[in-house]
Every structure is written in C-alpha cells, then in structure tokens.
Design a protein around this nucleic acid. Sequence first.
DNA 1: CCGGATCCGAATCGATACTG
DNA 2: CAGTATCGATTCGGATCCGG
Lengths: 241, 241
Amino acid sequence: MAARSYGQYCGVTTAVELIGERWALLIVRDLLVGPRRYTDLKAGLPRIPTNILALRLKELQDAGVVRRVPLSHRGLVYELTAYGRQLEPIVLALGRWGFAAMGEPDPDDVVTADSLTMALRTAFRPDAAEALPATGYDLHVGDVGLRARVDGVALAVRRLDARERGLDGEDVGGAEAGSSAEDQGPDAVFVAGPGIRGIISGELAPDDALARGVVRVPRGDAALLGRFAATFHIDPAAAAA
Amino acid sequence: MAARSYGQYCGVTTAVELIGERWALLIVRDLLVGPRRYTDLKAGLPRIPTNILALRLKELQDAGVVRRVPLSHRGLVYELTAYGRQLEPIVLALGRWGFAAMGEPDPDDVVTADSLTMALRTAFRPDAAEALPATGYDLHVGDVGLRARVDGVALAVRRLDARERGLDGEDVGGAEAGSSAEDQGPDAVFVAGPGIRGIISGELAPDDALARGVVRVPRGDAALLGRFAATFHIDPAAAAA
DNA sequence: CCGGATCCGAATCGATACTG
DNA sequence: CAGTATCGATTCGGATCCGG
C-alpha cells in the first residue's frame, strides 16, 4: 500500500486519492469549460506553482481523468477524459455548496473566466430559462468579459475577446464592433454590481467606481434584470439594490 | 488573504478550502452516518494521526460544518451541522465516481463500518427497492457486520454488535440470539464474496476461505440474491459467481 | 512565448509519546 | 476519553533556469 494511502477499500477514499490533492479539483474545474494548454491553466490558477501544476497533470493522467492531446499545428492541450467529465455534476454541486459560505471577496482575490463560467453553469436553472425567449447577456467582472446565451434549456458561455471587451467604462453598450456573425450581440450588459456578484460569485475591483458596483441594462428594459435573476437564481432583491 | 488561500473568489475554491484538506472529507463521510466521538472517528480512520484529527475537527467547526456536542451523561460527540449535512449527495456522488476506479483491494486495506454503510447508501436504488417487499440483509465483510433493512424507498443500515456478529465461520445463519425486538432478523446473510465485494466496495480477507469468498442465502431462497443485486445495483453475474 | 525541470526554504503531515 | 507536544519525513510554494 502506498505510504500516503488512506488505507481503506472505499469509493470515497479512492475518489479523494484521485482528485483530493491540493489544486487538483481546480484544474478539473477549468478543464470542464474546455481543453486548455499548460499556460492557460497557469493563467487561470494564478497562484499555482508551476511544478505543482506539472505534477498534478501527470497524476490526473495516471488517474485516467485527464488526457494530453498534441495539437495538429503546434503545442498541446489537456482535456478531460469521459471519466473526468463525469465529475461535472459533483464540481457544480460543490460550487453551489461553497457559494453559500462565501463572504465578501478578499481585496486581492481574483475572478477568472473559467471560474465565472462554471459559476454561471452552477447557478443556471434550465426550468426557469425554458419559459423565456432566447436572450444574450454580457457580463463584465473585473477584466473578465463573458457572453452568456440562454436558449430554451441550453446555456452557452463564451469569453469576449479584447476587442469586444473594449466597451468598458462609461460607454458600455455603445460599441458594437466585436459581435461576430453567428453570435448576435447581447440583450443586456451587466457590469460588476452587488446583485451580479451575488450569483456569479465574483467581483473584482480594479477601481473604486466599479467596486461600488453598477448594474446596467443599456439595450433592454429593466425587466431583463429580473429575467436574468430568475434564470440564474439570483436573489432579485440583492440584484435590484 | 491567507497565505494558503487559492486567491480566487469562487464557490468551488471556497468549498475546497473548507473541506479539501487531507482527511477532512473522510471525517465528513463518517459523520454522515451519525454523530461520533473522537475515539470512534479515530477507529474509523485507522491511519489518521491524532493531531491531524484534532486539527481537522477544529477547522471543520470553524467552517460551520461540524459541531461539538457535550453528552448529557459524560463525554462528547461531533456531529454535522445542517450545512455539513448538505454534503451528503456530494459525498455519495464522489463515492460512486471513485467506486468505478476501484480495483482489487490492497492486502492491508481495511473496510470500516461507516464506509460500508455509506457505500450501501451510495449503491441503493430507491426505484428498484420500491417494487419489492420489505427485506432485511445481514452483511459480513471482514470483522464488520451490518444489517440493512430495505422498506419501500427507505434504507436503514445499522451495525451488528459483537453478540450478533457471533455467527461467523461455518455456522452463519444458525445463531439467532442477537436480534432485537423492533428489528426482525435478516432474510438473507451475505459473507464477503466477490459479488458482495462488487457492490459494497469492501472485502477484508482475514482467512483464505473467506478471501475466496462465499455468498450464502441461508434463510431465504436464491432469488433474494438477485433482489439484493437489483436493489444495490450489483452485477448479478458477479454476484452469482 | 510554450512547456516544463530544478532547487531550496517554509509549511504541513505522520508517528510516537505523553497528559489532564 | 480526548486530546497536546514533539520531531523527522513529505509536500508545497516561489524563484529561477532551460530546451524548443
């Protein structure tokens, strides 16, 4: 028996031996959003030591959770195996559970695109979305920008690139440059804000104005905020505040 | 920010900070079966260092997951708070996930009463049980003895005490001494066996005969084995072997 | 830049001994 | 029973370095 084994023949014990080491489940969280290169993972986990990231990736491969895929062109990505993808409901449930214990963010806590994407998936209520017309939302939290498209019971979240994020500060909703062909612009744009922070579990405060928070719905009506709240299970009172 | 924090404002990160330390989730697993004293936990986690157990219990209390309750008579127990109990579906799902990766037990792996109880809860299919008449099963794995009573969609598992476990070796099913008033004796008695090992994720092999495994249904018919397999989602072929 | 490997001090874990 | 105290063994964190 390995020296560091828990010494029990049990499913929970086995699971914890596979994905219970420090940082491992956060790597899985980011890979649940999509395949990622080594550097992407490092950027998404700013405080992970590089040797630990390399070690965990090896261990997760040995565990059959992660696969290393060379890219046709050059470079390589890590992606979850089918077995690893089975962790999705568990990670989402853990996120929901942990969310309830979250207080105010520490001043130098960070919100990453992948953690925010998973937070949206966590909060998404397909049953609430099903009754509504398809809607797109842009979310800006710190320097992360995401576009969430809700359509029937489906949720699609993608990152906004630098051009699309160009619309910040006071002219939110004005610029339209970045919208790509297959993906119409958002029906609403949210910036930081306490209500948003509530659901998407993230607020980054690079400047004071943003820290105090704003929720703006520049291209739709205020009812969109309520729809957003219902779809993502925000406390509407907090969102309205 | 604490030096050891992951530095992210995210539900998953928060959850992992609360219950991601080594041994923590296994303490939660055992407490999901019921309140336990310090020495019970130590016995259920044979390889945990005592200082780590003490430290984790403090951390879990600070996290609001565990509560320390003085006993009226003397001594004290640890129990989960309502927030801690919300981890049950997550721990069960993790157990199911880890179960799929379990190979043969290491020779000195151990099966504890609490891990076995949680394994039964993990494998239990209320929908399969619902159609069946109420049935009791006694399970003997190594020196752990449990009585599982399946009734409608409910599953109740309790430990057999030393007297009740007295029926081992060749005279399994013979002795009836220990059955208490409110809890009729079992309809079937299972001893170790490969099929059993399959579901309940446990085999301890104190002697060779037991290691090779036996499945016996002394007081019912063989159909009980199939019923057990369905209710706890065993591979019937493996169970029959 | 990407994908790590290496080195070293700091923090944590594990084993054992001891105590109210 | 319910833990502390101590100390060596591991692991983690931070920084630097390296080959493609």
